[in-house]
Design a protein around this nucleic acid. Sequence first.
DNA 1: GTCTATATATCGATAGAC
DNA 2: GTCTATCGATATATAGAC
Lengths: 197, 197
Amino acid sequence: MTRDAPVLRTDPVRRLLDAATEAFAERGFHATTTRDIASRAGMSPAALYVHFRSKEEVLYQIALRGHQDARQIVADAPAGLRTHGERLSAIVRDFACWHAGEHTMGRVVQYELDALEPDHRAEVILLREQIEDDVLGEISAGITSGEFGTPDAKGAALVLLSLCVDVARWYRPDGRLSPAQIGDLYATTALQVVAAR
Amino acid sequence: MTRDAPVLRTDPVRRLLDAATEAFAERGFHATTTRDIASRAGMSPAALYVHFRSKEEVLYQIALRGHQDARQIVADAPAGLRTHGERLSAIVRDFACWHAGEHTMGRVVQYELDALEPDHRAEVILLREQIEDDVLGEISAGITSGEFGTPDAKGAALVLLSLCVDVARWYRPDGRLSPAQIGDLYATTALQVVAAR
DNA sequence: GTCTATATATCGATAGAC
DNA sequence: GTCTATCGATATATAGAC
């Protein structure tokens, strides 16, 4: 039986990205040194520059992969569900739950984008807007079908996206709510927000 | 007619605190240099150290005053209002509106606390918990009186506080919604969140 | 209380051996 | 591809003139 875990564990790019994600989430991009990243990955300070051109490129790779993961979560959530209420609930549940379970990644993805170079930032923001469009589209469809009563689709989308994203700020693994419980709370909240006023 | 604006404008402590608030909000605490703060205040790099012991003490003074302001907003909002719905709406409206209008201060207050020394951070977190207790108390009172139907006071408080705080992250002065419009949207959302499920 | 000049430390990134 | 050693730039904070 072949095992690929050792191969993954010793992949230096993966190790550096994971180490940098932790460090950026804890202390922020500018407060994190390349020495700290390399040290967490069990490497010398110079080793980072064999795999990345700069500290900014490390952040770019993390932000890109993080946004791609988040987009996939939102795109997959409503699969197989028919009503717009079920679909929106699933999207908000999974998106909130992801920001809790992956709160280190989420913190980097949501709070360190200003440190990216303009071209990299623009590329990442495109992915963000796709996620926002997915949520707004589901809300608008529910309003058109008569299932949702709110007259303000953009306002509801703003509220629900903001809620999910902010989970990465306040979530603590030893807190009162598990990622799944947060997902349940936010799925319920989603239906309240799109209800008639 | 006496004018006090010139006096205020030349108060070096106030000028440095305002300059630092702007810089911290734009680039974060660690990415901001003491030279940048002093330069924005129209002073030499060394002048900052006449009024503050360190860059961290500048952040501490900003975080302290910002939290005191926020607490005052939440405490004053329900004055003169009788029903718990009116009172909670007013609290959420004013708190969200404050995070929009004072988004530079809000960003520092909400996102740079990790840069504080342990003693300073602990002092500021006490003020945060008072604000959280104010909101939770109003929700619990509304549930006890039968005015609110939600069975989950802590969940509702978590959702509403998170929403208001996150305004500081996404708000832009040239955006679609004014601070007052954001307050209206969030006041409406508050009543939806505490309604029966 | 503000300035110029600088001490001291640490950073991002590179050079060159193995 | 990883290491040790280090360069050049820049940071916080201080010293001392005015």
